[in-house]
Design a protein around this nucleic acid. Sequence first.
DNA 1: CCGCTGCGTGCAACGGATTGCATTTGAAGG
DNA 2: CCTTCAAATGCAATCCGTTGCACGCAGCGG
Lengths: 337, 337
Amino acid sequence: MPPRKQKLTSMDDIARLAGVSKPTVSRVFKDSPLISPQTKKRVLEIARRHGYSVNWNARKLRTNRANTIAVVMHLPPQTSETASAPFFFQLLNDVAGGLWIRRHDVLLCAPESDDPYAYESMIASRRTDGFIFFGQGPGDQWLRNLARTRVPFVVWGAADERAAYCTVGSDNRRGGMLAGKRFAELGRQRVLFVGNRAHPEMAQRREGLERGLATAKRAADISDVDVADFTLETARRAMAAVLARRGRPDGVFAGSDSVAMGAILALRDVGLAVPADVSVIGYNDLPMAQYFQPPLTTIRQDTHQAGSLLVEKLFQALEGVRPEPATVPTTLVVRDT
Amino acid sequence: MPPRKQKLTSMDDIARLAGVSKPTVSRVFKDSPLISPQTKKRVLEIARRHGYSVNWNARKLRTNRANTIAVVMHLPPQTSETASAPFFFQLLNDVAGGLWIRRHDVLLCAPESDDPYAYESMIASRRTDGFIFFGQGPGDQWLRNLARTRVPFVVWGAADERAAYCTVGSDNRRGGMLAGKRFAELGRQRVLFVGNRAHPEMAQRREGLERGLATAKRAADISDVDVADFTLETARRAMAAVLARRGRPDGVFAGSDSVAMGAILALRDVGLAVPADVSVIGYNDLPMAQYFQPPLTTIRQDTHQAGSLLVEKLFQALEGVRPEPATVPTTLVVRDT
DNA sequence: CCGCTGCGTGCAACGGATTGCATTTGAAGG
DNA sequence: CCTTCAAATGCAATCCGTTGCACGCAGCGG
């Protein structure tokens, strides 16, 4: 492929036009304090008139920094329907905001594979300075492996027990506990956890649920429905299957709002009323949650804060500091379920 | 800021290790047919062993192409709640997919401003090769201006009458017409269009609506509710205001699903039953639409196809061809409203 | 045995900016 | 009037690949 377009004006050209040297122009564009105000003004003026802007690639080459952060959305490859997606997109928005403030570019990536090599090579080739992963997926061994390399990254998800890598996540245990306590208050006895314990975050939510339920006077019973993904449809089917086979719950704690909605539809299908017969609590407080019928009771987490934290931690990692994991607070939003 | 990290292995190093010259290594990584299979194999082997990958920035500098496409999501700056967001995120997914296939990076951008200069400078600095804009926003004069520059871009939205720039969009007029025809069939007489005619796409949908209604035996009446943004909340409020002041409609065509949901809530608040008293039709067929209560009747557009088209057209533009606008088909999905 | 064709490689000249160090200049200090 | 110092600017090396062109060598037809 031939190089594109006509020769474009370069720093040399601007330097010549402004009657200064190339380094001076360079410093002007870096806003270096070394340059006198008049010179700066003149150079900028000329540059603007000629539609010049610094060649980013040359700069990146020379400085050896990409000034770019890659966001990896760990979604099932084909399914663009994934209903937990809305949450991640909201998070994406907030993360991108934080990165723009720090004048970094946001590169969108699909998870190539779990092979650390793919990520190492993106760093080695200077396409990105670091990664933000959205969600750990089922099992996080690959992240532990990645942590052994020199790849800077942070993860939205559950804190790793062995603290091999830095995470920012909602306080899953506390979120679960809030749900558990509420069920306890409502006197619910047979609670179903709909999620997938292979995902570290889900496991923590379930753990919190247990603890919350333990505050009840009469011990409650927990059983599980594992779903392969967190789409509404999958949850609905899984729930229907369980309702047909096993006994009827009087409380349902769902790993995400979309799952909660699926569960509610399944409950309604077998004639159980929400919340009269069964209390349901979701997770994430998606925008849709409040408009679902009935409006969903759910655990909210602050994505805006999450976004800034993720960015902040990653920048620490880039500085060579080992960032501490963090959690964002969770609150119970009581609506009608 | 000092250059980061230790000196990393470069093409020279690999060349030396493999006992060949730098150009040869370069050609290996470009998968050039000039190189003999043995040499290629040997070089790749050595490169992999040393964790080498081509420095992307150097390559981009030399070839003068960014191999990157910027996606600009034209969302209101602050509001991350924008409920029409889900649709754009779905589209983002599909666009990104198309770009990955073409081995291009996806850069996420906020709309800096309507000033073409911002975009020109991103091109000049070779941070991106072109732009994909999601939505035109209210008024598209700035896009016409942008079209006069050398910036390659395509837009998701309504076709520009003067064809100043290339768009891909749903067949808005047809979509509107489908809605209009359905209202006609149902014998609806007083139809409300909830949208914002300043947005070209919305104007087209309304136009289609009119045409569709014209097929009725008895002429129907159209009036408008303009909303400032397309969030559920805004729509709900606007709708409530109108219901209080003006007469009651028996049909509502909403510019987007989130608006439709807002409208339904407002209708319910004043005691109007959907669909008994009022038929409501939305637009986009968001994943949530089918789970709303009652499940939303709406106009669906194929985002997957839209994504590929956008990408395809943009690449034509990059090749210097002036791409033709295109539309993706729309279908009426009849549910319970 | 010679000249030609083509494949596989190497040479060297870029591409556009950054930066450590040297240099100029004007003002302040002696 | 001569230093001395800081501020402002210039010099030249460097970052790492890509590519037009030249070259060596093997095989082939004459």
